[in-house]
Design a protein around this nucleic acid. Structure first.
Lengths: 199, 199, 199, 199
DNA sequence: GATGAATGAGAATTCATTCAT
DNA sequence: AATGAATGAATTCTCATTCAT
């Protein structure tokens, strides 16, 4: 397993730092190698090509996060609380690693479309968790059973993602974690029974 | 005024097509020039550099759209209906120009951060419209007066944007306009009184 | 006659200024045109191409100077005094027009070899004056009759030219005219009877 | 040390040939690379840019020459003989490498002013040797003790340089080394006691 | 496994010159 | 004569990737 070899994670971590500090275009392979303390050629013993570093970076950082997410959320019963945990963990994950936040919200999106398709593959796991929460809520009656799951997922992911991106674009000058409750409330409302229905 | 010169719009339109069909990086300036029916050098009479084509393209296409948006929405009285019009116009704008949709949702985001800052400048106008709708709704009692306007805006924009991006990533294989109503409903719910409040 | 048309000299003068202030490579035809207050295309009504501006510039500024030189020097009888006048006029000519001095000593030499051959053509007139002085001195017995005229000319021109170039490279921070006498003395010595001969 | 790497000198030598035969502007980097038997990109492992090749070329070829010059001249006692050696070595150096002569007398001067400042840095060493000779002669009584050292240096360098340039401009059709004695005589005279003083 | 010197494809941009008005 | 918008050829340099050691 690649990831058990020390240089693998060394390169990944160097890539996060170099990309965050210099931007995607200035993140030459040779710079990442230097930051990782390995030779340029060594990179190619662990990664197929430059794009592969990026995808792997996302897979490692996001993959383990999704694992944790699934684990924590499975232990919670209500959809609303699950969603609260999702928002909290998402915000906490990125607020606690500014370099990673910059890379995922800004730099990784400068990649070409082909790469973004692969990144979307990684996102699938995350989105499956969201779908699961939505369905749980619909079944339990917490959410409107008439919801379009895909749209609900897009609202949840779009809202969370946009909130993080705005926070990054504003130089992280406020506390992202303080937005967990209000964002959660917006999403719960969105997924809930429409007002008119209630009347 | 640049945009009164026919070649300016000619180049913009050629750029939309060439970039949508080939991707930003494969869209060589010479290809755009050829598609526009002008010489390579002519591009540089109208645009500072290749990036400037991209930003200008967004400014032109988005700027006029925001103008229309403001106009139409100002004629509507309720926040809910304003928001419905926004979603509808946004989806219609991009659904009716597939090339433009690809460029705005995918290609434009490959630009570097400096460029993205300029793009955000253009987005300001759009977001101001969203803010206006949210405030209108809060004042009229349609929306929860306790809303955080910035968060509400991020939910609205994030949801709409993510919906369009998903549609593009799925090769536009369904009808985006059919999503106007459900998306609108999600957003209205999100901005409305929380269920618990109502009880 | 081209040079009687006002725009001809207007362009020449603009070229001297633009080249002196911006350097040879930044002296685009369009900049010269702008400085001269004419359209780019107008340049080509008076000059065959960009190089032609440079050669013409040198011809005009140097040609008239050589005319004056011949005139003044013909009125002087001794070779030594003629040479003194030459050095004085040369230094005075360039010290009184800093822009021209920069152009002739630095910028004009960045031209390609073909152009430099043409410039040498212009220099012929100047060098003929020098040759004439040397021959006069050899005939009158002021100078060593065994001189190689070509070498004497190269010493005279080389010394004067190097002195002016050094003055320019040192930002013209001393008075060039104060060097007339010592430079003249060096040249007179060089052309005179060798010391050993005298003994 | 760059210059110990074989490719460094390989590229320098290729550059001398290519620039001499084609002129500086026609000497594309790819042509120099081809002549040196390396890839285009390899040039940039050894040189910052195209101009850097030119300056480095001059530094290498002129630097070692100045070293030799200092060495040989230090072993000679009289200023007159030192000067004779200087002229002889200078003429011999360029007469024995026609390509180098063309590059230093013609092509190197097409460089821009910034570059010429760097070239002047290299020339400093040469001019220091000249200054040393002049001072030696003034102290020993061979030269006029009233000489202005800077002017004497300008005469010596200007005369030698102009002589070589003329030789190049005349397609090297005569033997430069035959001019060593007469040029030396001119310079010795120039630096000697003025005739009037002797009377 | 590790190195890092060497490779070479690939594209944006400038600016002298033209010519329809 | 004068204009100035349009032309398009031409070249440096970067950087992901390879492979001999």
């Amino acid at each position: 397993m690649k990831r058990n070899k020390p240089k693998y994670m060394q390169i990944i971590d160097a890539a996060v730092t170099v990309i965050a500090e210099n931007g995607y275009h200035a993140a030459q392979v040779s710079r990442i190698a230097k930051a990782a303390g390995v030779a340029d050629g060594t990179i190619y013993l662990y990664f197929k090509n430059k794009e592969d570093i990026l995808v792997s970076l996302f897979e490692e950082k996001m993959g383990s996060f999704v694992g944790e997410l699934e684990n924590k959320i499975s232990k919670i019963s209500t959809a609303s609380e699950k969603l609260h945990k999702l928002v909290e963990m998402h915000f906490h994950h990125l607020a606690s690693d500014h370099h990673l936040a910059i890379v995922t919200q800004l730099e990784l999106r400068q990649s070409n479309i082909e790469l973004r398709v692969r990144i979307n593959g990684v996102l699938k796991g995350y989105l499956a968790v969201v779908d699961h929460i939505v369905k749980t809520g619909m079944e339990s009656g917490e959410f409107n059973p008439g919801l379009d799951v895909r749209l609900a997922r897009q609202m949840i992911f779009g809202t969370i993602d946009e909130t993080v991106t705005s926070w990054i674009m504003n130089d992280q000058k406020y506390d992202l974690l303080q937005l967990v409750n209000p964002v959660h409330q917006l999403l719960i409302n969105g997924c809930g029974y429409s007002q008119s229905t209630l009347k």
